[in-house]
Design a protein around this nucleic acid. Structure first.
Ligand SMILES: [Mn+2]
Ligand SMILES: [Mn+2]
Ligand SMILES: [Zn+2]
Ligand SMILES: [Zn+2]
Lengths: 137, 137
DNA sequence: TCAATATATTAGAATGATTCTAAACTATTT
DNA sequence: AAATAGTTTAGAATCATTCTAATATATTGA
C-alpha cells in the first residue's frame, strides 16, 4: 500500500475529504521520485487509465486548484495555451525545450547565485526564477 | 509628424499594408521612449480612444500576431489569464509586482551575469530570462 | 441501524480569450 | 472604370476553465 496516509493528510489539510477520485489524483501527482510537470489534459488521460473510468473535469480542476491554494503544487509560466503545474513548489529554475516542449527542472546548484544589483525600496522579493529556453541542435 | 516611415516599413516587412488601423497600432506600440508591456484588452481601449471609434478585435490580433512572428514584439510568460506582450524583444528580465500586477523590465546590468554550471550536449540555448516576483511591503 | 444532513461527483452549460469566417469595404492595377 | 487583391468588421466557432444544479456518497447522531 502506497503513501495513502500522506495523501489523506494532504487532502484534509486542503479542506478536502479523501475520496477515491481525489486519492487517485494524489497518487498521480505525488507518488513519484521526480518532480512532475503536467497540464490538466495530460493528467486527465493518466487518471482515466488508472481509474479505468473517466473523471469529471470539474473534480480535477477543483482538486488541483485547492492544492495550488494550499501550496502543494504551483503553476508554471510558459508561452503555451494550456496551464502547466509543477509538484516541485520550491523556487527553482527550468529548461524549456522549444523543439520538444519538454520542461525540466534545474536547481540553484546548476547556476551561479543570482545577485540583483537593483534596489527595491518598499518591496519584498517573493521569488527569483530563471527560464532557459533551449532547442535541439 | 511621427515616425510614420518607420511604421510603414515595419508593416511592409511584416507583409502588411500600412492602413489607418495598423498605423495607429504601430503608434501605440512603438512611438514611445520606454518598453511597452500590454495585453490585447488594454491595447484595444487605447486604440479606441485614439481612433475615436472602435477597432475590430480581429484586426488587433492579426496585426500583433504578424509582429510577433516577425519578432517586432514578443510574448511574456506570466501566470495570468490574458496574454502579455512586450515591445522590448531583447532577451531581458522582469520584475512582476504581484500586489499591483505591474510588469517592469530590468536589464543585464541590474543582475550579475547568469552562469549555468550544467552541460547541455546536443542543445543550444535560445534565451535565459529571469522573472523576479515582488510584492509591496 | 437508519434517517437526516453535509459534502462530492458529474455532465453539461456558461464564460471569456483567441481564432476563424465570410461579407462589405478599400486600395491597386491594367 | 472595371477587375483584382487585400482589409476590416461583426459575429460565430473554438477551447480551456469555471460554474451549476442534479445525483450520489459519506458522515452524523438518535
Ligand atoms: Mn500563448
Ligand atoms: Mn492562470
Ligand atoms: Zn519544476
Ligand atoms: Zn520587458
Amino acid at each position: 500500500m502506497k503513501n495513502y496516509s500522506n495523501f489523506v493528510e494532504k487532502l484534509r489539510s486542503a479542506g478536502l475529504r479523501p475520496t477515491k477520485q481525489r486519492l487517485k489524483i494524489c497518487e498521480v501527482l505525488f507518488d513519484r521520485k521526480e518532480t512532475f510537470h503536467f497540464n490538466v489534459e495530460d493528467l486527465k488521460k493518466i487518471l482515466k487509465k488508472k481509474l479505468e473510468t473517466s473523471i469529471s473535469v470539474a473534480t480535477v480542476y477543483n482538486t488541483i486548484n485547492a492544492f495550488k491554494s494550499k501550496g502543494y503544487i504551483k503553476e508554471i509560466s510558459l508561452n503555451t495555451d494550456k496551464t502547466y503545474f509543477d509538484t516541485n513548489v520550491t523556487s527553482h529554475h527550468h529548461f524549456y525545450n522549444v523543439t520538444t516542449g519538454e520542461l525540466i527542472d534545474f536547481h540553484d546548484k546548476d547556476v551561479e547565485e543570482i545577485k540583483l544589483k537593483k534596489n527595491l525600496p518598499g518591496k519584498k522579493i517573493k521569488s527569483i526564477e530563471v527560464l532557459v529556453k533551449i532547442a535541439n541542435k
